[in-house]
Design a binder for these strands. Structure first.
Lengths: 142, 142
DNA sequence: TTAAAATAATTGATATATCAATTAAGTTTT
DNA sequence: AAAACTTAATTGATATATCAATTATTTTAA
């Protein structure tokens, strides 16, 4: 047990790093000019149209500063627009552009392929257990 | 199954992020001026005294550029020294200083506490399964 | 209802991640 | 031995992570 204790975080780190690199490489190979993090942010806005940047940061496990900068880049890339929320002028309304919607739609198939590739040969029950372990770690670290 | 597929990477990402934040916070609270990544690099050099930067980068899943910069900071912090390897002048010999050895020794107890806290209440068999799943993902993404 | 507290977002500073290009030193080929 | 190739490390550019400090706005409390 002691040895595995030492190594589980190492493997968590390694697996997510490799998956992200793999996913990013596939996006690049298909000519998509977007990062995994940017993709995730647009995806969350599409699914939660009234979300604030602060709520967004909690949803994607990034801090406010990171979200601000990712959004800046998304606006520069013309995937996103923002305007002050008249109901609370501290907040912004985030609006995915046509171009933003399009790239998400086009990228979707590759994302699914990436997941299938990464999870190939893994038993559903084992995956469920792994997920439960991860959720437990999340709870413990909060 | 499909839904879990969608969420497992989300939880992998979330768990390692929270664990790193927790671990970093604990180090800071105890007054240690070192990052988790820097700690890992020193640890690897101590355990592999003849390791090159390139080998190091493979061991800690970082690329050469990141390792170069982490080593620069470790040298600045006086935890590490490096000198050209006379047998192959492209390489460096990495030497942990007394101060570097000391901080690793002093930090050890906190690292163990962090791991115990993060893994509390997780069954050994389930942990083993989770680890196997992660290793499988690693293999699949290579 | 004004002062204090809380919230949302930004900015600055520093660390790390990633890719591409470059430099320097070794190795292989012809 | 010189040219071509390979390897090790660095550097530059850009993206993200994290903390602390700041600004603007809203809410709460005195």
């Amino acid at each position: 047990m002691e040895k595995l204790n030492n190594i589980i975080f190492y493997n968590i780190d390694h697996s997510i790093r490799l998956y992200r690199m793999y996913a990013q490489k596939k996006l690049r190979e298909h000519g998509f000019k977007i990062t995994i993090d940017q993709w995730l942010v647009i995806k969350c806005i599409l699914e939660n149209p009234t979300i604030t940047q602060h709520e967004l940061s909690e949803l994607v496990f990034k801090d406010n500063a990171s979200v601000t900068r990712i959004i800046d880049l998304l606006i520069k890339a013309n995937y996103l627009e923002k305007e002050i929320n008249p109901d609370d002028r501290r907040k912004f309304i985030l609006q995915v552009t046509k171009s933003g919607e399009e790239i998400i739609k086009n990228v979707q198939e590759i994302i699914l392929q990436n997941r299938n590739k990464a999870l190939k040969g893994i038993d559903a029950k084992e995956l469920e257990i792994a997920d439960a372990v991860l959720r437990k770690i999340i709870t413990n670290c909060k």
